[in-house]
């Protein structure tokens, strides 16, 4: 079963694709697309592997940027997929977040986590993300995102020198400081 949905920019989202589903999807797509377009698919597949929740929106940008798909090729790919009978995704069957993925996010967030924490967060985050997937049911065609509820405006001020924190005050809470600086351990290997 293949699941796909068009977003407001006319780009495709493939959400519930675990590895088994991805390969099934690739086979299905191969069947749908003409033989002469097999090379597109090969490039496409390369981008496709390694994603659990995957969006063609990103893939298309990445493919376009990194593997030299021509815009016409991408357009072809999209139109082929659009014309085929893909189902609206069942987001409830999304794959769970794996401990490896949690480890990766923790790495990005610079958080040291224990094995137990990783297991627990994998299960917690999967539950929350499952719930959050209902957002995909909302039609947001032509809806602008809200980053701030305030009317957008630039707030300017004169570029004047004003008193700020004294260095002593700024350093007062530092775990370690030296000669008016925050002290840290060496950043580069071999440096002192």
């Amino acid at each position: 079963m293949i699941s796909a949905v068009l977003d407001c920019e006319g780009l495709l989202y493939f959400m519930p694709l675990d590895c088994r589903r991805q390969s099934h999807f690739i086979q299905e797509l191969s069947r749908l697309l003409s033989k002469s377009r097999k090379d597109i698919l090969r490039k496409f597949k390369r981008q496709f592997d390694g994603f659990h929740a995957f969006t063609l929106h990103h893939a298309s940008n990445q493919i376009y940027n990194q593997t030299n798909f021509a815009p016409t090729e991408l357009a072809f790919l999209k139109s082929e997929i659009r014309n085929s009978n893909f189902e609206i995704p069942n987001f409830a069957t999304m794959p769970k977040l794996t401990p490896e993925e949690v480890q990766h996010i923790a790495e990005l967030a610079k958080l040291a986590l224990s094995e137990e924490e990783i297991e627990r967060y994998a299960s917690d985050l999967s539950a929350i993300l499952d719930y959050a997937r209902q957002l995909q049911n909302v039609d947001t065609d032509h809806i602008h995102p809200t980053a701030s509820v305030l009317p957008l405006r630039n707030v300017m001020r004169l570029d004047e020198v004003r008193p700020g924190l004294e260095p002593e005050a700024a350093l007062a809470n530092a775990p370690a400081s030296e000669k008016g600086y925050f002290r840290v351990h060496a950043v580069l290997e071999g440096s002192q």
């Binding site: 977003d7 989202y13 959400m15 994603f51 929740a53 995957f54 969006t55 929106h57 990103h58 977040l97 949690v102 996010i105 923790a106 990005l108 967030a109 958080l111 967060y121 917690d124 985050l125 929350i128 993300l129 959050a132 957002l135 995909q136 909302v138 947001t140 809806i143 602008h144 995102p145 809200t146 980053a147």
Partner: peptide, 27 residues
């Protein structure tokens, strides 16, 4: 838990599906 969830929502590949989508529904 929240730092992890937020980092995930902003991370490459998920930004549009989660964070941008949430901002649109906020509208």
């Amino acid at each position: 838990r929240r730092i992890l969830l937020g980092t995930y929502a902003l991370s490459a590949g998920y930004y549009d599906a989660y964070y941008l989508k949430a901002q649109k529904v906020r509208t």
